[in-house]
């Protein structure tokens, strides 16, 4: 049986990298005595799939992973058991038994939305809010994206589905599919660069609100709806 787990990551544990978060949950599942299925072969490991990796330093209220279990009591029972072995900074928000045909968490990710706030050291121009919206309203925003595989010309506009100013923060919904994903920091770096503002190191605090899949009707929905 496949089960999807939604969790939050906040506070000091935001400095854990993706692999360490995976290791943390592998051990947590054992502490919670959850009967996770293991792979076959010489070095069996828990059958586990994480959705979009979160960058070191970011917080989130919409992280997901799937596991395969041999025994299943109820969604609430599993949630409580796992929550009882968490450390501060990780909360188990929801658990859902998945239909067999559901794509695994990693393959199903289509988008994610974020709230970005600025460090005090960012020299925000007077009219940055209007400037940002003008920037976003352009027909297309051609940029060069640097990945592990090299540099690529892309249109930023295609990957940013929604962008708005919320108070002093910036909200955005971006493509999070593998290969086409857009980092929220990159969007704002591009904007400030084009506005001639030079940013200090580590200018943003980034919080992921939710991770989405694309449903058959084309709409985005949280990985657990």
């Amino acid at each position: 049986m496949k089960v999807r787990i939604k969790f939050s990551k906040y506070g000091p544990v935001r400095f854990l990298g993706h692999l360490d978060v995976m290791r943390y949950f592998q051990k947590a599942l054992r502490r919670a005595d959850i009967d996770v299925a293991y792979s076959e072969g010489f070095s069996p490991h828990q059958i586990m799939s994480f959705a979009a990796p979160l960058s070191v330093g970011h917080t989130s209220s919409g992280e997901y992973f799937d596991i395969e279990v041999n025994r299943f009591t109820s969604e609430e029972d599993l949630r409580e058991k796992l929550q009882s072995v968490m450390v501060e900074g990780f909360d188990i928000l929801k658990v859902q038994l998945l239909p067999d045909k559901e794509k695994n968490a990693m393959a199903g990710v289509a988008a994610a939305d974020y709230l970005v706030s600025f460090s005090d050291k960012v020299p925000l121009p007077e009219n940055w809010k209007a400037g940002l919206m003008d920037f976003y309203r352009q027909e297309s925003i051609p940029v060069t994206k640097t990945t592990k595989k090299g540099q690529r010309e892309i249109d930023l506009k295609e990957g940013v589905y929604l962008l708005e100013v919320r108070g002093e923060d910036v909200y955005m919904l971006v493509d999070a599919g593998s290969g086409s994903n857009i980092k929220p920091g990159f969007v704002l770096e591009t904007f400030f660069e084009k506005s001639g503002v030079s940013l200090p190191e580590y200018p943003f605090r980034i919080h992921r609100l939710e991770t989405y899949k694309r449903e058959e009707n084309g709409r985005l929905a949280p990985l657990i709806s």
């Binding site: 943390y24 502490r31 070191v56 330093g57 072995v85 450390v87 460090s119 580590y202």
Partner: peptide, 19 residues
């Protein structure tokens, strides 16, 4: 600070809070 933790290798060495 965040700035320092983001600059160093393996910041999780310094945050405590382990199980």
């Amino acid at each position: 600070s965040d700035e320092i933790l983001m600059q160093v290798e393996k910041p999780a060495r310094y945050i405590g809070n382990e199980v």
